[in-house]
Nucleic acid binder design. Structure first.
Lengths: 221, 221
DNA sequence: CTACTATTCAACAACATCATTGAATAGTAG
DNA sequence: CTACTATTCAATGATGTTGTTGAATAGTAG
């Protein structure tokens, strides 16, 4: 074969390893979760409702295409996205959102019938933050909050929301966020809060989006 | 099934349409070429040495995942990348380049034995440009030059390089570029120029990279 | 209307990917 | 050393993807 042709074939073959890795919905979900912070195989399996063996296999694929890194930590193997991968995933998500009409449809169908799900827009939220007229809840699991959260947000994992009701303000807007537009935690939180007489709204953006917009992100407690 | 689970499955299923589109080396090559400017099916088939029918089928896949748009122009159907797609492709390429060691190997193996292929680095080139001490050749086909080129570059398609030798300076460095690090046009151009007594160097970056670095790009003639 | 052209479609066999299952491994705790 | 745990491996059938081939389509030019 023409050596130029062969060179190109080999190069694009290598590029396609990245593509193959992100061509499977399960692996995309894994990547999405990993972009919120590192996780064990078990943790990912639980979060995605997949068998552990499948989860492990998908993680192998992601590892072989160099999109994730692994590290043994005590009893567990912890996976973590490789550098640049979350930005890459975000750019893929953006294309999908703007170009694939079905996504909007699926979202609308899912949200139909749920009250008060119109997302709060960034600018309004930023104004409220300046006026100190809003409480921001991060309803993700605590380890994700620790790995990075919107500056000023309070960690109230969805599971503990019921116990925390007494401590939340009834005279102020509450804004809940989670992993992004396709994470259901904040939806459930807002539903629950509104049923209990709070004035709650959802923020669609996740920490990734927040950071990508150049807004302040904190980590730790 | 749990409606939350179903929602996630459907959403990630949609995301994966983008991934599936870029999971095939042929389609990546097509995308790469399209990022240099729009093309007909025939043109793409010739450029990639694929049968026309295969080319068309791959283009259908790209169209169904909304990565390219098509437009009928006279006798031909012209394909063009959708907005954001070239940036997405670039970010994919960057991850592959930095994380997949095989790519470096393949490149080295291909370049082995070819003289003077050490690429010129940006900063040196920018200095030479300021000093007006360099001629920059765009050795891609003319339509790609027209769609966008490095400011100050001269269009000398590889095929016409032989005819243009008399017009090129022998007392000045010549820098040739093409579509990017994996395009062989500039390699062939530099080889040919050096064999004919010129002092030629290769610029690895293509117009996309150039633009992404915030450097000036022009279009038209 | 006819000949022609660029593109797409349809069908096939070869090959790759997927989820699932149960077993294997390697390392920890007692 | 033994029991246990988290993870990985291996094998399987079902399902998708690929490239190839030749035919179909739709639109243009004469």
């Amino acid at each position: 074969m023409n050596p130029n042709r062969q060179f190109k074939n080999e190069i694009y073959e290598q590029f396609s390893r990245i593509g193959k890795a992100v061509s499977n919905p399960r692996r995309l979900e894994l990547l999405d979760i990993l972009c919120q912070g590192e996780r064990t195989v078990e943790g990912l399996a639980k979060e995605t409702a997949m068998p552990v063996a499948s989860t492990s296999q998908h993680l192998q694929v992601l590892k072989n295409s160099r999109l994730v890194e692994q590290e043994k930590k005590g009893l567990y193997v912890v996976y973590r996205p490789a550098p640049m991968v979350c930005e890459f995933f975000l750019s893929m998500r953006r294309i999908a959102e703007t170009r694939i009409a079905e996504i909007e449809q699926i979202k609308n169908r899912f949200l139909a019938g749920k009250e008060g799900m119109e997302p709060m827009d960034r600018d309004t939220l930023l104004r409220r933050i300046r006026e100190d007229a809003v409480t921001i809840l991060d309803v993700r699991p605590p380890e994700e909050f620790r790995a990075g959260h919107i500056e000023g947000a309070v960690s109230v994992p969805l599971e503990e929301l019921g116990l925390m009701l007494a401590k939340l303000p009834r005279d102020q807007e509450i804004v809940a966020y989670c992993r992004g537009p396709y994470c259901v935690l904040s939806i459930q939180a807002v539903e629950f809060l509104n049923q209990n007489g709070f004035h709650a709204l959802r923020l669609e953006e996740g920490v990734q989006d927040w950071r990508a917009m150049g807004l302040p992100v904190a980590s730790g407690d």
